[in-house]
Design a protein around this nucleic acid. Structure first.
Lengths: 155, 155
DNA sequence: ACAGGTTCGTTGCAAATGCAACGATGTGGC
DNA sequence: GCCACATCGTTGCATTTGCAACGAACCTGT
């Protein structure tokens, strides 16, 4: 009677949200984000978007809003406002690109660099913690993430 | 000179956001969510929170806001407002719990059940698609998700 | 029965978000 | 050089969100 995709008494096909991969991934993303954000929100007063922008600036200086938009997967208006907030806090500098005045060059200030010098080791430690949690399964996990990013990139 | 956690010329430790697991997971979550939402937003006019609430109601009828809050990992105010919207659209019924009048019993209406009868097979197909993408790696991937949920549950 | 404390769901309010529209700047065709 | 068109970043606006506060209902001990 049970054909493996059974029908419940109420006429609906059986479905377990808790086992649904998109939901599980969203949940893990949320938990990891919260765990990490706990560190850098309480200690540095950063939100997730702010952390992302700073992290990208730390690895590639003098980039445009558009560059960040692509690199950190955020809407350009979100990047723009985040950058404005970071500038107001003195962590990021904005100046017009001399070659193309439509562009804005974002870069870390001295303060911004100093903060990231404290923050990045914490991030690396967190990464190490996750890898330790997963042990030998980490490589496969990361590969699967890459596969899904490929399969569902933009579409 | 490169000790494996090198220092960049700008004095910051090397860090690759694109390889940072929390970021990668967040990205996959976003992509999967978008891919799925494309289906049920255009065809059924549902948002992600609405989908989650309906999905939970489909598998366990007559539950309280608090139950859903736990089951679908959403703030209670978000659940409350989502339920109100679904009620206004005639997909969900709300009634006071006769045993404990603080509680609200949420359940699918006939219309709601009918919609879910169309939706759930799509969700199952999407799940199958993901599993096909990952092939034999899916089991390990899912296990790793579970491990991370355990490790970072609530804290 | 009643006072103190707890749980449930809703709501007010400020902040964040997405989307579209906009001005400014660049580019290419002619 | 000029005009149509594309790109960049910001902003207006409506919606969504999280948090705290609230009233209502329940529970406990006395």
């Amino acid at each position: 009677m049970d054909d493996g995709q059974g029908i419940e008494p109420d006429g609906l096909p059986a479905f377990d949200l808790g086992g649904f991969t998109p939901y599980r991934v969203a949940l893990v993303a949320q938990r990891l984000s919260e765990a990490l954000a706990r560190e850098y929100r309480v200690r540095f007063g950063l939100s997730v978007p702010e952390w992302r922008v700073l992290a990208h600036l730390a690895q590639s200086d003098a980039v445009s809003v558009r560059d960040i938009e692509d690199a950190v997967a955020m809407e350009k208006s979100r990047v723009s406002r985040t950058a404005a907030r970071l500038e107001a806090r003195g962590l990021v500098a904005k100046r017009a690109d001399p070659g193309d005045r439509r562009l804005v060059q974002l870069s870390l200030t001295g303060d911004g660099r100093a903060m990231m010098a404290d923050l990045l080791p914490l991030a690396s430690a967190f990464q190490g913690e996750i890898e330790a949690q997963l042990g030998t399964d980490f490589a496969g996990f990361d590969r699967a993430l890459g596969r899904l990013l490929e399969a569902y990139r933009g579409g």
